[in-house]
Design a protein around this nucleic acid. Structure first.
Lengths: 335, 335
DNA sequence: TTGTAGGCGTTATCAA
DNA sequence: TTGATAACGCCTACAA
């Protein structure tokens, strides 16, 4: 590996001049620049990232912590973040904790050793230690999707409440009165916001919320499956369900299948989060799509701006969209 | 940020001793170690990654280049790689080129600046410059899924040919004789291997391959859609299709829907690559599942071993499995 | 417009 | 068992 000194020697200048020439600074004579460039090219010179990071006191790596990179929502966030980061010649270190506490702990160290210039995170739990470490991290932090209690940092999210409220209203307009919701842990603010939209829609429609139609604390496919199974055992049965995220939807879907019920005849299904295969499911699933890719871009953008010295950056709230497909229908007359 | 010197001062030792003590080397007196640890703890000392990388001449970052992190296959590879890397306290930089050449070019630089200690890559095209740069990269390289022509490096893959041969045999046993295949570009060795399995199965069954039932060069959902649409226009129509990867399958599925044909009555569909929602599609899709997660782990493992000085590492071939669901059926009698 | 020189924080070598 | 010290490669005052 050729170093800056080799280039300097070959070009017959000092290392300082090499740095300046390669950065195309105006203070370098054109002819000198030319010589330096030629030398660099000939030697295949590439500045060492480590040396640069050490000298600058900052790396060009952005971190993204997500619970599960296999979840397409996060994969899209990652793609968006990466694309935006690439524009600024930054790279992304993606850490998928896989809901693993031990893993999260391990990540903390890497937060502090300067590997990362900035961090975008969607945290899993309310682990105080983790939260504290996040805010103690050197360099900017941006939260994606949800904000753990007590963490001060800009947040990129969708307008959960508003979009849910509208979507649920649609259900009422179709004639539903017994709408269930499979919600997440009460300390997920996303779950709270979606639940809040759900309640608001009830109020709008003048329909009282039946608390036992709301299932809290469900996560993942298994959570969705269990909750849905429970819900289906109720009499009278709900005529529609709203699932608070993609995995829960998949679980619920499987439970409905297992119970040999038909969507939307027996029950309507509304999903929060879209998935690429939802259009192909029987029936195609109506879903509220979050702009995951854009969220990733926005997160990177905020980080980059903070790295650039910008301050006072606010939360960024992006719009979600209801995508009508075939899983919503009117309740059966006698239902 | 406390530096090693601060710790040394506080503990009343030299920086060299701090390094040694913190690494728990036996050559340090227990009492000294104790003092150093206490000092480090008190100062919240975390060794700088950049300084360490510079000094060691090597980072603790593993790179993963994939065409598209949103494709669940690659997301799972990433997860596997990350998990394995984490065990060795390495992190992963995931770069998803999104099939973007410009992006690939940009990544080349980062290969050479030492950001990455090693690299796992699934390359898109046969871009010679890119391939050359890959092999010129300092540090170990491992290929995932496919090997571009002329690149020497261990490869982690599945036994494409064997599993395809078996799966297609199943189709013959059901009575199919006109089996189509939507294949990828001829310079994808995966496509070649799967195609080869397809041909072998024909030979096994004593059925000659009808070349026009084979469509080459298709990629992505749109590729699958086009190819399938073409195929469906043929008379006599094929009674089964084999799609060489997940995205192509999705496209084919949509084309079949658009043509208002029913699976498997009108046509059977066999997918290479499984997807989490395939069980929920109408009908559930029978697929050949690659152990993507394991492939990621294997890739990281190879990198780590090479980084450890191990040499002469071979390709790693993992088994794929046929998952029977509902998209395969016998051809209609008169077909 | 260019060069000199010191520092970034760690590790490794050599000597004590 | 410990300490000095010289790299590692780049950047940036400051000086010329």
């Amino acid at each position: 590996m050729a170093s800056i000194r080799d280039v300097a020697r070959l070009a017959g200048v000092s290392t300082a001049t090499v740095t300046r020439a390669l950065r195309d600074e105006p203070s370098v004579a054109p002819k000198t620049k030319e010589r330096v460039r030629a030398a660099a090219l000939r030697l295949d010179y590439v500045p060492s990232a480590a040396a640069r990071a050490l000298s600058n006191g900052r790396s060009t790596l952005l971190g993204l912590f997500v619970p599960d990179i296999v979840n397409p929502f996060y994969a899209e966030v990652a793609q968006g973040m990466e694309d935006r980061a690439a524009q600024a010649r930054y790279h992304c270190v993606i850490a998928s904790s896989h809901l693993n506490r031990e893993r999260e702990r391990q990540l903390l160290t890497s937060l502090q050793d300067g590997t990362l210039a900035g961090l975008a995170a969607t945290t899993v739990g309310t682990d105080e230690a983790f939260t504290a470490a996040l805010s103690a991290m050197p360099g900017p932090l941006v939260l994606v999707d949800r904000r753990p209690r007590g963490l001060k940092a800009p947040l990129v999210r969708t307008d959960n409440r508003k979009v849910t409220r509208q979507a649920i209203r649609g259900l009422f307009e179709m004639g539903h009165t017994r709408i269930a919701m499979i919600s997440g842990p009460q300390d997920f603010d996303t779950a709270c916001q979606r639940l809040s939209g759900f309640r608001l829609a009830h109020r709008d429609a003048g329909v009282p919320v039946t608390e036992r139609l709301i299932r809290h604390g469900h996560v993942g496919e298994s959570g969705g499956y269990e909750a849905m199974t429970d819900l289906l055992a109720l009499r009278p049965r709900p005529t529609a369900v709203f699932c608070f995220n993609n995995l829960v939807t998949v679980g619920a879907l499987k439970a409905i299948r297992a119970a040999e019920l038909t969507i939307p005849t027996d029950i309507s299904l509304l999903a929060f989060d879209d998935m690429s295969l939802f259009p192909l499911v029987d029936p195609p699933i109506t879903a509220i799509a979050q702009p995951a890719y854009e969220m990733g871009r926005a997160a990177a953008d905020i980080l980059l701006r903070r790295l650039d010295g910008e301050n006072g950056i606010d939360d960024s709230v992006l719009p979600a969209t209801l995508i009508q497909r075939g899983s919503l229908g009117p309740p059966r007359p006698h239902d």
